[in-house]
Write a protein that binds this DNA or RNA. Structure first.
Lengths: 141, 141
DNA sequence: GTGATTGCAAATCTTTTGCACTAAA
DNA sequence: TTTAGTGCAAAAGATTTGCAATCAC
């Protein structure tokens, strides 16, 4: 039955599509990242999940892999806290809520958020991306 | 002539206002930061300036001071790159251009930029701040 | 005086790198 | 077989911390 292999095949195709050799750890990490819903992970987090899932992988390789995936357009890096990188599996144009208390990062639902009167880029430059981070704190703080 | 002491007095008042004891290095750093136009500095940068200006101060103290100033509302921290903090002397509500090539951070001129259809904060939370970072790259990249 | 502040060095934390080893094509 | 990828440990960079010495009040 081929059905059981579909998630595996999807991950494989994704790597092929990005021109990345499908090694054991890249496949395993791709499955952790892309099966299921969109997610926001740190390298440390993903490494923990990989270890729990009996995928032998070092933290250094997780970092390398996340950077390769990002360069290949499979992931997007989101910077919200100094000294910590989040990687977002949703690479489409969208923005984020950041819960300062817990360190959680979430997509802002809907695609309604828009920016008015964005100034044009200074001469000699163009806009690569616009990031909007809505920082949330616990009520009553 | 008291005129010559005005910048010193302004820095002193600012520290008093924030409830911070006006030590030599806090005064010196405050003058570097707040005399002149608004600026965006990293700890490393400011430390370099202090040393050039013959203000004896260690990098650790620069970090501590920047954090104290931020906690006191004299500065605002802007996060644009993983692993690097910028401190902005303009604490009013505004947004930023970030030049990815050079690492320069600039205020977006004018106060016209506005956000449309911002979703309400999830239950139990409130919006602490909205950061907009417009990432620029050199033309033709 | 006395409690806050500083300097320094060491510690911490995140991320990257060098290199011998292993696995994919 | 040949080249890319991995693991590990070490390096690197940014920031924080512990503690004795120093300074503001």
């Amino acid at each position: 039955m081929t059905t059981a292999h579909r998630p595996f095949k999807r991950a494989l195709d994704r790597l092929h599509g990005a021109g990345l050799r499908p090694t054991r750890q890249r496949l395993g990490l791709a499955r952790l990242l892309f099966e299921g819903c969109d997610r926001h992970v740190t390298a440390e987090q993903l490494h923990g999940e990989a270890v729990s899932a009996d995928l032998p992988v070092s933290l250094a390789t997780v970092y390398n892999t996340l950077n390769q995936f990002t360069a290949a357009g499979l992931l997007r890096e989101v910077v919200v806290e100094a000294g910590k990188s989040y990687f977002d599996t949703n690479t489409s144009d969208h923005h984020h809520f950041f819960l300062e208390n817990t360190g959680r990062l979430e997509d802002i639902p809907g695609d309604h958020l828009a920016i008015q009167n964005l100034p044009s880029a200074p001469t000699g430059t163009r806009i690569a991306r616009v990031d909007v981070i809505v920082r949330l704190v616990e009520d009553g703080e």
